[in-house]
Computed example of a mutant assay.
Amino acid sequence: MTSSEKPSLDPHPLSPYVAWAGERNREPILELFKERFPKSEGNVLEFASGSGMHIHYFAPNFPYLSFQPSDVNEEVFENIRELTKKTQVKNVQPPIKLDLTQPQTWSALIGQKFDAIFCINIFQVAPISIADGMMNCAVNYLSDRGSLFIYGPFKVDGSYTTPSNEEFDTTLLSYKVPAWGLKDVVDITKAGQKYGLALKEKVDMLSHNFTLIYSLS
């Protein structure tokens, strides 16, 4: 298989499919972050870091920021630590366990504030209920200037924005996994409003995806 060929759908964070998708989307996301991330010292948290591919790609571009990877699945921590060694990136911290559905796991964040929190390609394979925990966690640990960035494919007001997104959703639903399928921006935004986070911007991205940017309302 060449790097341009699309592997079979597999949401496991260490799968060839996730690596392929990550390589395709990382540069457009980085360009957005260069525009929107703080220009001075601060802290950045990634929800659901998976293999760590994104955080290690972004961090060298922001040497004045400290990046904190996290994931519910401790199986990926070795890969994250190995990437840190391999890339010799100095501003990525050791990974921590965060389960957005279990607030007791957020104790690792106590005493910290983050100037940016980001999450990439999670909602198409996670239940919409995770949005509640994500917003609750974010509002507790964002700094006053901080924003939450959520990247991925979404429906908007109950509709598909492109035929390709409808086709992707059909593929996801065909696997009969209850959590799989495109989620609606409206539902994620309702979860944010519950905790005082407002959708400030919906940015069009590569492959008909979006970055949703939430901050304190």
Rank of each mutant, 00 (worst) to 15 (best):
N165V: 04
A126R: 01
E75H: 10
F47V: 00
R36Y: 02
G196F: 12
I120Q: 06
Y214S: 07
L65A: 11
S15Q: 09
L9G: 00
D99E: 11
R145Y: 01
A131S: 14
K97G: 07
K90M: 15
D115F: 04
T2N: 09
S70T: 13
T87D: 03
I80C: 01
G50S: 08
G42C: 03
E31N: 14
S40A: 03
K200C: 02
K86G: 00
R24M: 09
L206V: 13
K97P: 02
K202T: 15
N43W: 01
K85I: 14
D169E: 06
F154H: 04
G152T: 07
V72Y: 13
L30H: 02
G42F: 03
I128F: 05
G181E: 11
G152M: 10
Y175L: 15
E41F: 07
V92W: 08
L14S: 10
N91C: 10
S129A: 11
S164A: 15
S159I: 05
L212E: 06
F123P: 00
A59L: 14
Q102F: 11
L100G: 02
I117Q: 03
G146R: 08
K34T: 01
K85E: 15
P127A: 13
G181Y: 04
A138E: 07
T170Q: 06
N136G: 02
P69Y: 02
L197R: 08
G181Q: 03
N140W: 09
G42A: 03
I29K: 03
I29Y: 10
N61S: 15
G152A: 12
S49Q: 01
T211A: 09
V156C: 01
G196Y: 13
G146C: 07
T161P: 03
S3N: 00
S70K: 04
P38K: 08
L199H: 11
M1R: 06
N121T: 01
V18M: 14
N136T: 02
S8R: 04
L14M: 14
E41C: 04
S174E: 04
P28G: 14
V18C: 10
I213D: 08
L206S: 13
K190C: 02
D71P: 12
E5N: 05
